[in-house]
Write a protein that binds this DNA or RNA. Structure first.
Length: 709
DNA sequence: TTAGGGTTAG
């Protein structure tokens, strides 16, 4: 059979799946060069690598190994996805044509095999083959991916010598992109200015560089220059320009770019719509943002993620989770960006069950070991009161970095695990090469604070001030003031505040609340005026002082404070507690019986109070901050929001649910704290309560905070 | 018979 008729046979054969090999070995092939060319060509569209290799073998056998067929084979191997065969062939060729070099270099560069691209480029040059415009436009990308500035500059020099830097816009834009990615914007700019025939790709590469470096004014200038010069921006240009508009922060500028986008007809392009929705989210313009999303027929995973991120940034965490579920039903599948964002939503809402579900999803997608998702999970488990689970995610990380270690320390801090936080802090400081930052110290000082480790906290604070270059923030001072103040060292705490250059209202308020705990009325009155100077309309400040007067039974002052607050139209925000059951959130306010199951809840609450009393619970009415008779005081304690939430959770869940979790927007009062301890004994269940500052883990009649909070 | 630019995160 002659080869031509063979090809015909292959095309017509109904048994097309029959391997080429079995036929070919039984066939005496006598063919000419054009026939081989045609055979090679035939293998390419179907990516039939095994057939291609057979053709290659016969080609060698028949001695048709000349240049032009060599190019075709290399090209075909690349198109069939076999880099190794293409490379082997190139290496075997005595003097490959420039096109063959370029094809392999380009394939390496576009498949993220930058090292090999650069190595091959070097070999090509050392063998005396001069690179051309195709070589440069591929290889520059590889240089920037590797971050090798010196080698990149040497190749740039060669391009200049060969006159390709300014005359070929492909080379020019590859150079601009390379310098931009290397962070060398001045070089990117000067190359761009030298290119003779500027086009949209060249200028977009420059805008991208500026936008990613946060040099937004420059990015916007290039954009407007480009429009002035009559170069039409496209989808890619808009997507980066809008990033700069968002960072620049002027909605008017953003809207005018949006206007131009509409005028030029880019209303349904995915990338530019994605940047548009991100921009509007950053401006807090949620409606415009969702309009940008809705303009797309097939949003991709980046668009979905941007939508979710935008909702979270605008405090719409619950909606973001609904959108995530919708995304999961669509064809777009989440990546690590998406998952770390939704985990963040769960951690803000403290939705442990949902967070766990997403953790499982991350494991399914094989993403849970990645630092971003991992760190988000550590944060979530920490904020949901399960530091042990945070730790197991932490231990599973391939490599813990600064942020993940900081998150772990912070999780320990929130949950009152001072010892564990300190261990990790010292490991980090003494046994790793990580450079500690302000967040590290904030976490570890908070940990000392939440565990009452005064000496340890002072030692670390001194270390921070004397041995590091980290700027001591008002947050660090606040931790120390709180730590000293709550432990009763009010004078030292006040001295520390006075050491700060311009102490802010938060710092003074921290001291004020320490005064309240220790009923230091005189200091409180002095501090109170300081807070009011800095934050005159702050309701919390008035409440603090009013509570101090109440706790010292100074009712006339309480009444005076209340009338001041009324005059200033300040109102105390309501105390609120909530629980997540079956991925649904139930909210309770003190003395509020509007829950549909209110009767059942009150029944359960009564039972819990009786049981607690039989175990020795005596209500401490000094926590009632209103002047009323004792009976009423006692009843008002019973209906605190956290008690309603606990009663509800215990009624709704079976005994098999060993642990229930309650969240509160304010701090837990002392009497509730005692009562919850009794409840854990009475029902044999564990109760975790998160207040505005930290977690309390109640178990077998005691709390993890050691009654220090 | 080969070439250049984009949007999301702890």
């Amino acid at each position: 059979m002659r080869l031509n008729s063979f090809i015909h046979f292959r095309n017509c054969s109904s048994s097309a799946s029959q391997p080429f090999f079995s036929i070919a070995t039984h066939t005496q092939l006598t063919a000419s060069s054009p026939c081989f060319s045609s055979l090679i060509h035939q293998c390419t569209p179907t990516k039939n690598l095994s057939d291609l290799k057979i053709v290659h073998t016969h080609l060698v056998k028949n001695g048709f190994c000349h240049l032009s067929l060599g190019h075709k084979l290399i090209d075909s191997y690349l198109k069939c996805g076999s880099m190794s065969d293409a490379r082997r062939l190139l290496d075997e060729m005595p003097e490959p044509h420039i096109v063959s070099w370029n094809s392999v270099i380009s394939a390496y560069a576009s498949q993220n095999r930058s090292g090999e691209a650069v190595e091959l480029y070097g070999r090509m040059v050392s063998e005396g083959v001069l690179p051309d415009e195709y070589t440069f436009s591929s290889v520059f990308r590889a240089f920037s991916r590797l971050g090798v500035v010196l080698e990149a500059r040497r190749a740039h020099g060669l391009a200049v010598v060969l006159g390709l830097e300014t005359s070929n816009v492909f080379v020019g834009s590859a150079l601009v992109d390379m310098y931009a990615k290397l962070g060398e914007m001045r070089d990117a700019r000067s190359v761009c200015d030298r290119v003779w025939d500027q086009d949209v790709v060249l200028l977009t590469a420059l805008i991208v560089g500026y936008a990613q470096k946060g040099e937004d004014v420059e990015a916007l200038e290039v954009f407007s220059d480009m429009v002035r010069k009559g170069i039409r921006p496209n989808e890619f240009t808009f997507s980066s320009t809008l990033v700069s508009c968002a960072n620049f922060g002027d909605a008017k500028v953003g809207e005018s770019v949006h206007g131009l986008m509409i005028k030029l007809g880019y209303v349904s392009a995915v990338a530019s719509q994605t940047s548009l929705l991100t921009m509007y989210s950053k401006f807090g313009m949620v409606k415009e943002s969702s309009r940008a999303f809705n303009a797309l027929e097939n949003p991709n995973k980046i668009t979905w993620t941007s939508l979710i991120v935008g909702l979270i940034q605008n405090g719409k965490e619950e909606t973001s989770l609904l959108k995530f579920r919708k995304m999961m039903r669509s064809s777009a599948k989440p990546n690590s960006f998406t998952l770390s964002s939704v985990v963040c939503a769960c951690s803000r809402l403290a939705m442990l069950d949902t967070g766990r579900q997403i953790h499982a999803l991350a494991t399914k997608y094989g993403l849970d070991w990645r630092n971003y998702v991992g760190t988000a999970l550590i944060d979530m488990y920490g904020k949901c009161g399960t530091p042990d689970q945070a730790r197991s995610v932490f231990d599973a990380l391939v490599e813990a970095d600064l942020v993940s270690m900081n998150s772990m320390i912070y999780s320990y801090a929130l949950n009152g695990c001072g010892g564990e936080a300190l261990d990790l802090f010292y490991t980090m400081r003494d046994l790793t090469s990580l450079e500690l930052n302000d967040m590290t110290f904030l976490g570890v000082l908070l940990a000392c604070n939440n565990s009452g480790l005064v000496e340890e906290g002072q030692r670390i604070f001194t270390y921070l001030r004397e041995k590091t270059d980290i700027k001591v923030s008002s947050g660090h001072y606040a931790c120390m003031v709180d730590l000293l103040g709550r432990s009763g060292r009010l004078v030292e705490a006040e001295m520390l505040v006075n050491q700060v250059k311009n102490p802010d209202a938060v710092l003074w308020r921290t001291l004020l609340s320490a005064c309240r705990i220790h009923r230091a009325v005189k200091m409180a009155e002095r501090v109170w005026t300081k807070v009011l100077e800095l934050a005159p309309g702050d309701e919390g400040t008035h409440i603090l002082l009013s509570n101090l007067y109440a706790s010292t039974s100074n009712w006339s002052q309480v009444i005076a404070m209340k009338s001041t607050m009324r005059d200033m139209r300040l109102k105390k925000g309501p105390a609120m507690s909530w629980v997540e059951i079956d991925r649904e959130v139930h909210t309770f306010m003190a003395g509020d019986f509007s829950h549909p199951e209110s009767e059942k809840i009150l029944g359960k609450l009564g039972e819990l109070i009786r049981k607690a009393k039989s175990l020795g619970y005596i209500p401490d009415t000094s926590f009632v901050l209103q002047d009323m008779d004792e009976d009423k005081k006692e009843t008002s304690l019973y209906y605190h929001s956290e008690r309603l939430a606990i009663a509800f959770a215990l009624w709704r869940t079976s005994d098999k649910t060993t642990c229930i979790r309650v969240l509160k927007n304010l701090r837990v009062c002392g009497d509730c704290h005692t009562w919850i301890k009794f409840v854990t004994v009475a029902v044999g269940r564990e109760i975790i309560a998160r207040d505005s500052k930290r977690f309390h883990h109640f178990k077998n009649g005691s709390c993890s905070c050691g009654d220090y909070w």
